[in-house]
Amino acid sequence: MRRVTILGLFVLVALTWGTTWLAMRIAVETIPPIFATGMRFMFAAPFLISIAYLRKTPILFPPGQRLFQLGITVFYFTIPFALMIYGEIYVSSGLASIIFANMPLAVLIASVLFLNMKTNIVQVAGLTMAIVALAGILYEETNANINAGSHWQGIIALILAVIIHAIVYAQCKKRCCDVSVITFNALPCFLAALILSTLGWLFESPQISNFSECSVLATIYLGAFAGVFGILCYFALQQKASAFQASLVFLIFPLIAVSLESYIYGYAISAHSMLLVIPLASGIFIALASKTFSLGGRRLDSSS
């Protein structure tokens, strides 16, 4: 029964994260990226705060960690998620998901730099293999794109989002910031919604009459479903499975994202890039399998 539960949670998380990237692409078709991200969090926050109220879970971090909670609002929610959806203006959802699948490697590097975590030769080999493969994919996809300059803008935005998230994970572990998944997400999500919605309204001047039904539904999906259900499912998966088993979802959700984009939009990454996905996934697998480490514990919600 436990194995069935783990498998079910794994599939749910992979499907949720895999569809998140397509939803972001649909959202920015008619909604400016910063305002869309604010809407996303505005849809998620009431659910998270309601769950906190019903479960009598505090929404504030413990005393001494509340300034850090503000930092999480800015550097975990506000900036990286805005960068993610901005990146999807210029980068396909499939490629965006492949870039973000490297989160385990970014966390590994951040742990080495900020936590003095020891590595072994196998981890380094896996890390090197994955980075070289990712560089090859980015080079291949950029050459195939007629707007190479804009394409790199999107790639850099997504890579920055991964790096910032990884640093936050390392800082959470360094500060022993062990709060519930609801506490970690509820209030920062609401504050980020206010910040991004305000900035988007002031600087992007969104025309609500131009928002398509599909874009609005996509932001609702990102907030109310992926932003809440995805968090809770991944947290439950981490409680029932090993850290290594839970981390394998990073190898699966990009395949779902690429397949969906190909089916719906008729666009897929090149055949050469698909071949490079094999050493990329192998490198990530080797790095994770050689020494299991936590990818942010109960705080990880990706994607997404």
Rank of each mutant, 00 (worst) to 15 (best):
A101T: 11
A101N: 11
A101S: 15
N102S: 14
M103V: 15
P104S: 02
L105Q: 12
L105Y: 11
L105N: 15
A106Y: 00
A106F: 00
A106T: 00
V107P: 04
A110E: 04
S111M: 04
S111G: 15
V112R: 09
V112Y: 08
V112K: 07
L113I: 15
L113G: 09
L113F: 09
F114Q: 06
L115F: 00
L115W: 02
N116R: 12
N116Y: 07
M117C: 03
T119V: 14
N120F: 10
I121Y: 09
I121K: 14
V122P: 02
V122H: 09
V124C: 11
V124E: 14
G126N: 12
G126P: 07
L127M: 03
M129P: 11
I131P: 08
V132R: 08
V132E: 10
V132S: 12
A133R: 05
A133Y: 09
A133N: 11
A135P: 01
G136R: 03
G136Y: 03
I137P: 02
I137C: 03
L138A: 05
Y139L: 13
Y139H: 14
E140I: 08
E141N: 01
T142D: 02
N143W: 02
A144K: 06
A144S: 13
A144N: 12
A144G: 06
N145T: 14
N147A: 09
N147T: 03
N147W: 03
A148S: 14
G149Q: 11
G149F: 09
S150L: 13
S150M: 12
S150R: 13
H151Q: 02
H151P: 01
W152G: 06
W152M: 13
W152D: 04
G154S: 07
G154K: 03
G154P: 09
G154A: 06
I155V: 15
A157Q: 02
I159V: 15
I159S: 08
I159W: 08
L160D: 00
L160P: 01
V162M: 15
V162D: 08
I163F: 09
I163L: 13
I163Q: 05
I163Y: 03
I164H: 07
I164S: 13
H165E: 14
H165G: 14
A166L: 03
A166H: 02
A166G: 01
